[in-house]
């Protein structure tokens, strides 16, 4: 790919551009999930991953099929993200009451 082609590619955002953004966002989210000690930071990483997946659904819905099926699936992803956040926060609060800490490397038993 020559420089002129690359410059042309940069000037016309299409499917590949959105996929690139979502790929980077997904990797950042997985990095947060893997490295952070705080359980709430892990949850934020999961939200980033879900957002990246949603960008993919919408990009394919817009550029390849032209129907709205991808958008309906994106709504279901958002619904499940809301349910997941509520449950996970409740579990984190419970863990905090029991262990006085939410660092996931210190929580190593199911009951105290």
């Amino acid at each position: 790919m020559t420089v002129a082609q690359f410059s042309q590619w940069l000037q016309t955002p299409g499917l590949n551009h959105f996929l690139l953004i979502s790929g980077i966002l997904f990797s950042l989210g997985v990095f947060a999930i893997l490295t952070r000690r705080n359980a709430i930071m892990v949850l934020m990483g999961i939200e980033l991953v879900l957002n990246a997946a949603n960008i993919n659904f919408l990009a394919f819905s817009r550029y390849t099929t032209g129907t709205l099926d991808g958008q309906v699936i994106a709504i279901f992803v958002i619904i499940l993200a809301a349910a997941e956040a509520a449950i996970a926060l409740a579990i984190v609060l419970n863990i905090y009451q029991n262990f006085n800490s939410v660092n996931i490397d210190e929580i190593n038993q199911l009951k105290d």
Binding site: P13, F18, I21, I40, L43, M44, E47, N51, N54, I55, L58, A59, S61, R62, Q71, A74, I75, I78, A81, A82, A85, A86, L89
Partner: peptide, 27 residues
């Protein structure tokens, strides 16, 4: 904003209402 550019206006508003108004406040 990216959702709006992908012609998903409803999803974009849903994103702002649920993620920003709900999930982020919860976090």
């Amino acid at each position: 904003g990216l959702y709006v550019l992908l012609m998903a206006d409803f999803i974009a508003i849903t994103q702002i209402m649920i993620y920003v108004g709900g999930i982020l406040v919860l976090l």
